[in-house]
Amino acid sequence: MTLWGLLDALWDWLSRKNKKKAQAIYIDINVVLRELEDLAVVNKHALRLSECAVKVWAVRRRNFLDWVKRERKPLFKVAESTLLMETHSSGLRWRVGMGVMGTALQDNNPLAVDVSQAWAKAYDRSKDSWEALPQESKFGLTHEEFLKVARPASSSQSLGPFVMAVPYYEGASPCGVVALDMDPKDAAAIKLGGEFDDADRRVTQLLYALAKGALGK
């Protein structure tokens, strides 16, 4: 076999391997979404999955520019549920220690946070209000970054979503994090957040299984 033939065979193998892993990731994402549906049925709540998002983030430099800048522990989005109809894109380049997911990953500790509640006292979006918040409520964001990530004041939605973030480590190395974003009212209706009960444990376990399958070696 020629060199080009070997390269073609290697490329074909990698493509099939990556495709198989991607399919497995989306199967696991759908398992999480089905669990949310089940919780909605149990709690007699009309949940719209189109307003829920499950995202997988890996600790990985995204492109050559990240290498040039030597950006420390950037997060690269590996996959996300495709049902989300309306989204607010911040344009931020996420990293470990930034946002709810980045904080969960930095501390190696799952988090379930109603962001709109955590940021309630900064609803006017002023720098003074933001700076007055407790440090743990800022999730590593500057005021400028907060303004980019907060939903617009004109939006009918809350200031921020409910976020459940589950980190994945191998040994002492952070590999990535899986985050569930949904409307805080929906989260409360299906009993996510607040006290860490059966619903939280079940969803956390499914998110961790998704993270391990997507980010594990």
Score class of each variant (00 low, 15 high):
L3M: 09
W4E: 14
L6F: 11
L7K: 13
D8F: 10
L10W: 14
W11N: 14
S15H: 13
K17T: 10
K20A: 15
A22F: 08
I25Q: 08
Y26I: 00
I27W: 09
D28H: 11
V32N: 06
V32E: 01
E35Y: 00
L36F: 11
E37K: 10
V41N: 04
N43W: 08
N43A: 11
K44C: 10
A46N: 13
A46M: 08
L49S: 06
S50Q: 14
R60P: 03
R61I: 08
R62E: 01
L65F: 12
L65W: 14
D66A: 07
V68R: 07
R70Q: 15
E71F: 01
E71A: 06
K73H: 13
K73T: 13
P74H: 06
P74S: 05
P74Y: 05
L75I: 09
F76M: 11
V78R: 11
V78Y: 02
E80V: 01
T82N: 10
M85I: 12
T87H: 12
H88W: 15
H88R: 08
S89M: 09
S90I: 01
S90L: 04
G91E: 09
G91M: 09
L92I: 09
R95F: 04
M98Q: 15
V100S: 01
V100Y: 02
T103D: 06
L105A: 02
L105W: 01
Q106W: 11
Q106P: 06
Q106K: 15
N109K: 15
N109H: 13
A112V: 12
A112K: 09
D114G: 03
S116A: 15
W119P: 03
A122C: 12
Y123R: 15
Y123E: 14
R125L: 09
K127D: 14
S129D: 08
A132E: 10
L133Y: 03
P134A: 08
Q135V: 09
F139D: 01
G140V: 04
G140D: 04
G140E: 02
G140K: 05
H143T: 02
F146Y: 14
K148Q: 14
K148S: 12
V149I: 14
G160M: 04
Y168E: 06
Y169S: 07
G171L: 04
G171D: 00
G176K: 07
D186N: 06
A187K: 04
A189D: 03
A189S: 14
K191L: 12
K191H: 13
K191A: 10
L192C: 02
G193M: 06
G193W: 00
G193S: 05
E195S: 13
D197P: 00
A199W: 05
D200P: 03
D200H: 12
D200E: 09
R201P: 01
A209W: 01
L210D: 04
A211G: 10
A211S: 10
